[in-house]
Design a protein around this nucleic acid. Structure first.
Lengths: 192, 192
DNA sequence: GTGATTAAGCTAATCTCATTAGCTATTATA
DNA sequence: TATAATAGCTAATGAGATTAGCTTAATCAC
C-alpha cells in the first residue's frame, strides 16, 4: 500500500495544488494544511525548503510530459509523429497549467537542472524526426523551432492573451503545417 | 531638468535593476535604497505597492519594445520587414532580460492589461504583413505563429537552455526562413 | 528483547519583506 | 499669507519561510 514515498505524495499534492490555485500561490503553509501536517514538518522531507520543492515539482512535470509525449508518438512516423507530439504537448499544458508554470518558472533560476530535465522531451522530438532524411544539423534546427513554437504558443494560450475570434486551434494547425512544409522542403529541396 | 516624473524615474530604475539582478530579485527595500529613500515612501508614488509597480514595469517594457520594433521596420516591406522585426524583438530581449521577465511575468496574473499592453507589438506585426496579399485570417495565423515563435525562442535563449554546439543564430535564421516560406506558399499556393 | 538511532511530527522563535498608520517638512496655491 | 497637497520619515503590523529544539514511534544492531 505504501509504494509511493511520502516525498512523492507531497510533490503530487503540490502539483495538484498548482493546477488548482496557480503555481505562485503554493505556500508551505497551504501545502502542509492540505497534507494535514504543519509547515515546519515539510522540511523533514525537503531540507532545501520551497526551492527544493519547486525544483522537484519542475522535474516531476518534465517527467510527466515526457511520458505523455512518448505515449503519443508510439507507432507513428514522420508528419503523424510530429503532429501527435505537438498535440500531446499542447494538451498536457492545458491540463496542467500550474505544473507547467513550475516547469517554466524554474527554468529561470537553474538552467542546468532544467536543461537535464527537459532533455527527455528533446530526445523524443529527435526520434520523431528520425524517419525523415534530415542531417543532424537540420534536425537540431527543427527540434529547436518546434520547441520554441510549442513553448511560446502554450505560454500565450494558457494566459488567453489572444484577443481575436479566429480559433486558436486553427492557428495551431496552420503553424504545424508551416513547420511540416519546412521539413518537406529540406528533404526534397535545397539539400536534395 | 525635471521633465521626467518621479514615477517614471522609479520605473526606469526598477527596469535597470531587473536587468541587473533579475526581475525576481526586485524588492521594495532594494529599489528604495537605489533611489535613496525608504521603502514606505514608494507607496506615495505607487499606492498599489509592488503589484502596481510590476504592472507599470510590464507596460513600460511593452512600450519600449514597441518603439524598438517600430524603428526596425521603418522603410521596409515584406520579408525584409518581418526579418527586421524579429531581429529587433530578439535583440531587445537579450538586452533587457530582466524587463522581459517582467513583461512575461505579469502576463500570468492580469491577462487583460497584458493584452492591451502587447497589442502595440501585435499591431506592428500586422502592418509588417500588410504588403503581402494575405487574407485577414491568414494574417492572424501568421502573426500568432511569429509571436509564439519569438516568445518561445526568446524564453529559451535567455535561459540558455540549448545544450548543443549548433549556433542559435543559425536556428533563428532557419526558423525565419521556414516562416517566410510558409507566407510565400500562401500567396502563390493554395489560396491563389 | 532491549538500548540506540532515525524518522517525522510539533511548538516556539526568528528573519525578511510588504504594507499600514501616523507624523513632519516643504511646496504650491487660492 | 493661510492652506492644502506632496513626499518623505519612523514605528508597528502581519504573512511567510525557515530554524531550533523537543517528543514519540518505529527500526535496527546485537
Amino acid at each position: 500500500m505504501k509504494n509511493r514515498s511520502k516525498r512523492e505524495t507531497i510533490i503530487e499534492t503540490a502539483a495538484a495544488m498548482a493546477d488548482e490555485k496557480g503555481f505562485a500561490n503554493i505556500t508551505m503553509k497551504e501545502l502542509a494544511d492540505e497534507l494535514g501536517i504543519k509547515s515546519p514538518s515539510l522540511y523533514k522531507h525537503f531540507s532545501g525548503g520551497l526551492d527544493e520543492l519547486n525544483k522537484e515539482l519542475m522535474l516531476y512535470g518534465w517527467r510527466s510530459l515526457d511520458s505523455e509525449i512518448t505515449k503519443a508518438v508510439i507507432g507513428k512516423a514522420k508528419d503523424d509523429s510530429v503532429i501527435a507530439l505537438c498535440n500531446a504537448y499542447r494538451r498536457f499544458v492545458s491540463e496542467h497549467k500550474g505544473l507547467y508554470e513550475a516547469m517554466q518558472w524554474y527554468n529561470m533560476y537553474l538552467s542546468d537542472e532544467h536543461l537535464q530535465a527537459s532533455e527527455g522531451a528533446v530526445d523524443i522530438m529527435f526520434r520523431a524526426l528520425s524517419s525523415y532524411g534530415l542531417t543532424e544539423e537540420q534536425k537540431v534546427h527543427t527540434v529547436r523551432m518546434i520547441r520554441a513554437f510549442l513553448q511560446g504558443f502554450s505560454a500565450i494560450e494558457v494566459h488567453a492573451a489572444y484577443g481575436n475570434p479566429v480559433p486558436l486551434d486553427d492557428t495551431f494547425d496552420f503553424a504545424l503545417k508551416t513547420i511540416l512544409n519546412g521539413i518537406a522542403d529540406m528533404q526534397g529541396g535545397a539539400s536534395r
